[in-house]
């Protein structure tokens, strides 16, 4: 039974006791061999389709391979080329980083706001909770299609709205200044609901007694928000931040569906698009695998620092027991 103050989050984010595993692991395994049998199908799937490809990709990254003929070992040639001879590597990295900066803070703030809205005990709130989540469920292709029309220069909703306000029309998808911002808007719309639901779950488990006690002591609602709500949902916020950074850095679908080739020019040429082109259009699977591993390294470092910084703040939530 969860005690008040504990949020239902993946265990890796909760600082806790470590099992003294080494001694009893084998004994445990022998005792519960049937459990292992139950997870065997899934385990095989994970090994075949996740673990093996990941390890094989590491090997691939040291080769030049067009998957139709045999691979040619080139050592660190791909990595060297990436950092010294491929200007598109830096361009795509910069674009993905820009995309992350545009989407993550905004999505976080909007998700927080939506979660607070979902937390109201108002009639019909279930409808709104569902409505907020619907964009997440909608197919990416449908979303891209409709948003291309919303961004349309001549007849789109956004420019029509700007017209009403007597503002000049924006070339949402055909100008290099606005193209990335347009994609960010579309993605924020699509994914805010997902993170809002996670934060909402955290909000629901903030004990009401804390707010009541603070009210009695004369704290304003802004004060309560800053000093009670935020610290109590900090683990959820940390989770949302880490996941959305990892996800945004790997954006591909939206770009491929809306601009196709990362246009105009290289304005929306993101990292995964570069990877996809190198691997599947230019017959260079080895180089694409190297790109994938560099991305992994970057995200690993970012996530490590995020967790280190975040755990200290999140631990406040667990002190209240």
């Amino acid at each position: 039974m969860d005690r008040a103050g504990k949020t239902a989050l993946p265990g890796s984010f909760a600082p806790g006791r470590t099992l003294s595993r080494r001694r009893s692991l084998l004994a445990e395994m022998r005792r519960s061999w049937t459990s292992y049998l139950f997870i065997l199908p899934n385990l095989i799937g994970v090994l075949l389709f996740l673990a093996f490809p990941v390890v094989f990709a590491l090997y691939m990254s040291f080769t030049e391979w067009d998957i139709l003929t045999s691979p040619e070992f080139v050592g660190i040639g791909n990595y060297r080329e990436m950092f010294t001879e491929d200007p598109l590597f830096w361009v795509s990295l910069r674009n993905s980083a820009y995309y992350v900066l545009l989407t993550v803070p905004t999505t976080l703030l909007i998700a927080l706001g939506l979660a607070m809205a979902m937390n109201q005990a108002v009639r019909g709130i279930s409808f709104f909770r569902a409505a907020i989540y619907v964009p997440v469920l909608t197919s990416a292709v449908a979303v891209a299609f409709v948003w291309q029309w919303i961004f349309n220069y001549e007849f789109g909703l956004l420019n029509a709205f700007l017209d009403l306000l007597r503002l000049p029309s924006v070339r949402w998808l055909t100008s290099s200044d606005w193209a990335m911002i347009s994609l960010a808007i579309m993605s924020i719309w699509k994914s805010s609901g997902y993170f809002a639901v996670i934060i909402f779950a955290a909000l629901q488990s903030v004990p009401g007694v804390l707010h009541e006690a603070a009210e009695i002591d004369g704290a304003s609602s802004w004060n309560r928000f800053l000093n009670i709500t935020i610290p109590m949902i900090a683990p959820a916020l940390l989770f949302v931040t880490v996941i959305s950074v990892i996800g945004s850095f790997q954006v591909f679908d939206q770009v491929y569906l809306v601009t196709g080739n990362g246009g105009p020019g290289t304005a929306t040429y993101v990292y995964n698009l570069h990877l996809f082109n190198e691997g599947f259009t230019f017959f260079r699977m080895g180089y694409a695998a190297a790109l994938a591993y560099v991305l992994f390294a970057i995200l690993f470092v970012i996530t490590y620092f995020q967790l280190r910084l975040g755990r200290k703040r999140a631990s406040a939530a667990y002190e209240f027991e």
Partner: peptide, 17 residues
């Protein structure tokens, strides 16, 4: 052709626009 078409399309796009 794949690589050439990619830069041809991308850079000439500026001329069309």
């Amino acid at each position: 052709w794949g690589e050439i078409a990619a830069i041809w399309d991308r850079d000439l796009g500026a001329v069309w626009r």
